[in-house]
């Protein structure tokens, strides 16, 4: 059966060309300057990284991080109870609830964001509704609040589903044992349900934070250029400005940010598991 290995060779070549080489190119461009069309004439330079550290760009990076973190926290706060409610529902209701949670995700991402544009825009549905009831208008789009809302809307199911999956696998006997031994509901939640659900929470956080920190669609459409994120800067550099060097540095920084946050999350995941073992020993 060893001979079957050769089946992986063509794909290895494909991956080298279309996955490895492009990333090397981005890395190369980030550390050079000169004509992008002439690889031989590129000169080493850290100028585009120096440019990233200018206050306007630093502010954009910090902004992306803050907005992504906020949207992740909101998704966690809103999504955890939903996951618990769905996991506790009886099987028939449960599969219906799951289906209703998934259907919006099947709608094209662009259209979902566009839908919020038509609700939140100054003359949009929400303001007409508020006017109708004699309430003051809301001027949140374009702006940060609208971007945050768009992120929460688009990524909430990514938080709910992994947490639900973990919660639904928790052995009911643990909960019975806890209540037999006199633990009240709050105690059961903090001592059993929450620690056991950490892996789901961790993957939920990763699945929300990652697309949120790198988006340019949500900020482009709902933020109206007022609150550019790191994704908008990258798009600008590659599509409109043609400054690949600066765009590449920004991409590398985005990747590093994501790698660091993923490392932190997997650390928490591991610590959570050790905790679990600790409990078992005690």
């Amino acid at each position: 059966m060893k001979r079957m290995r050769i089946l992986a060779y063509p794909y290895s070549v494909w991956m080298a060309i279309f996955i490895v080489v492009p990333l090397i190119l981005v890395f190369l461009y980030s550390f050079t300057e000169g004509d992008i069309r002439n690889l031989a004439q590129l000169k080493f330079s850290t100028r585009s990284y120096e440019r990233v550290s200018e206050p306007i760009y630093l502010k954009v990076i910090v902004n992306s991080f803050i907005l992504a973190t906020l949207s992740t926290l909101f998704c966690l706060a809103l999504g955890y109870p939903v996951a618990m409610i769905v996991a506790r529902a009886n099987p028939k209701v449960r599969s219906m609830l799951l289906m209703f949670l998934i259907v919006p995700m099947w709608m094209n991402f662009l259209l979902r964001t566009y839908a919020w544009m038509s609700i939140l825009s100054p003359n949009g549905f929400l303001n007409r509704l508020l006017e109708f009831f004699g309430l003051p208008r809301l001027e949140i789009m374009p702006g940060k609040t609208a971007v945050l809302l768009g992120m929460i809307y688009n990524f909430l199911p990514f938080m709910i589903l992994p947490i639900y999956t973990v919660l639904s696998k928790i052995d009911k006997q643990y909960l019975e044992a806890a209540s037999d031994l006199g633990a009240n509901k709050t105690r059961t939640f903090f001592k059993i349900i929450l620690p056991l659900s950490i892996p789901g929470v961790v993957s939920g956080i990763t699945m929300v934070f990652l697309p949120a920190v790198s988006t340019f669609v949500i900020s482009g459409l709902l933020g109206g250029g007022k609150t550019p994120l790191i994704g908008d800067l990258i798009e600008q550099q590659f599509m409109w400005e043609g400054n690949w060097h600066f765009g590449s540095s920004l991409s590398i920084i985005l990747m590093v940010m994501i790698l660091i946050s993923m490392a932190i999350m997997s650390r928490i995941d591991r610590d959570g598991k050790q905790d679990e073992n600790g409990h078992a020993k005690a």
């Binding site: 190119l25 992008i36 790198s214 994704g231 991409s251 990747m255 994501i258 993923m262």
Partner: peptide
Amino acid sequence: LLNINNIPVLNPDIVTGVALMTLFI
């Protein structure tokens, strides 16, 4: 191979997009 295979799944789409664009051009 498995780790390289995972790169497009884990990398943000925007990075995959611009990286491919730089390759093609």
